[in-house]
Design a protein around this nucleic acid. Structure first.
Lengths: 195, 195
DNA sequence: AACAACTATCTATCTCCATAGATAGATGGT
DNA sequence: ACCATCTATCTATGGAGATAGATAGTTGTT
């Protein structure tokens, strides 16, 4: 059900077409939640049927059309209900830790590559999120700009703060992953792999 | 494909029935990788068909039987190949961060509950993993005991070290989650929710 | 006028996983 | 002898997501 709420979250800032949403999921919001277009379009249709959003067909160029969705009151209510409901946690399922637990079966060189890839991946994510935080802080982020338009400074600050805080959480976790992987590199060097 | 490799990992310690695996997934290994029995039994059958494991029917009580699977050479090879292959990362999809980013829409009390639940959840996991590390370190963990049986002290130490290291990684990440949620509680107190 | 690149949307297939529920024998205690 | 509980395995359904590919109109560039 998170996809549905991610879509509602986006539509609280402004009406959007499925394509707009798809683009946002590839960039900005995609750094927290990703979805392919083949999941987005059908879900938007279902949400319209459920009355959470309403779509209007608007012209695009000469012959083309596109469908723009706006969140309804029922949609806002549903979104808030989700936010006010305690979260459910999935069982643990961590492929990286699973591998790490059995590195005595791996080749030391491959193990080292594995940890280096881990560091690289998370470093790249940190760079993405830091850039995101920068555009939130200076309000150059277009989605945020539309969201805080007409709001008081105090309210704008609050809206921004929660988003920055979410990304800071992602960064903090990624930093721990990097530190762990660096310890992993030392461990591999000390212990080696199969013997 | 991680389920398959989690099963292979378990079977490198000793032959097991589907039920044995299921039980382990609920406790020890389940703290890193979880799977329900309805996923385990069919997967074991498929793995047998693929020649990664071989099953033999053994008696159980007077009339009952059970099927015990042993990993084959092909299975070990496949498992090692997985370990030696660079990991693939899923796109980010973090329901907790998604919610956090939009807490300006939530009620402050619900937001605080949300962060407290987050802290509680991860504290419980840390307790599980610390207990796990304890049983690994003192070799009272039965699966580990069977795994290092007959191995040299040096090799036993290496096998243990990787497992401890994996759980330490889980703990480190959970600790960051808790620290983040505590910052979240402060933020909610300072900023509040909907206005 | 041709063509690449982008906007906009849709369908199909497949794997993974969650959830629920069914069956049947075994074991241990009252 | 009865009953609860555990061991052992299986099937069915449905949602979520990955991947691939199809269609069609638009815009900008040689």
């Amino acid at each position: 059900m998170s996809l549905r709420n991610a879509l509602l979250a986006m539509l609280t800032s402004q009406p959007m077409t499925g394509y707009d949403v798809y683009k946002n999921f590839q960039t900005s919001v995609g750094y927290v939640w990703h979805a392919p277009d083949s999941q987005i379009y059908p879900e938007l249709r279902r949400m319209e049927q459920d009355g959470l959003i309403s779509g209007e067909t608007v012209p695009w160029g000469k012959r083309g059309t596109k469908k723009r969705y706006s969140i309804t009151d029922a949609g806002v209510e549903s979104f808030q209900e989700w936010l006010n409901t305690p979260p459910e946690y999935q069982r643990e399922r961590d492929p990286v830790r699973l591998r790490a637990a059995y590195l005595e079966w791996a080749e030391p060189a491959a193990s080292a590559d594995f940890f280096r890839a881990h560091i690289e991946y998370h470093s790249a994510r940190i760079a993405d999120w830091e850039e995101m935080i920068r555009t939130l802080r200076d309000h150059s982020n277009p989605t945020l700009a539309r969201r805080i338009e007409g709001k008081s400074d105090e309210e704008a600050e609050r809206i921004t703060a929660y988003k920055v805080f979410a990304y800071e959480g992602m960064i903090a976790r990624a930093e721990v992953e990097i530190a762990w992987a660096e310890k992993g590199l030392e461990l591999v060097e000390r212990l080696g792999g199969q013997s």
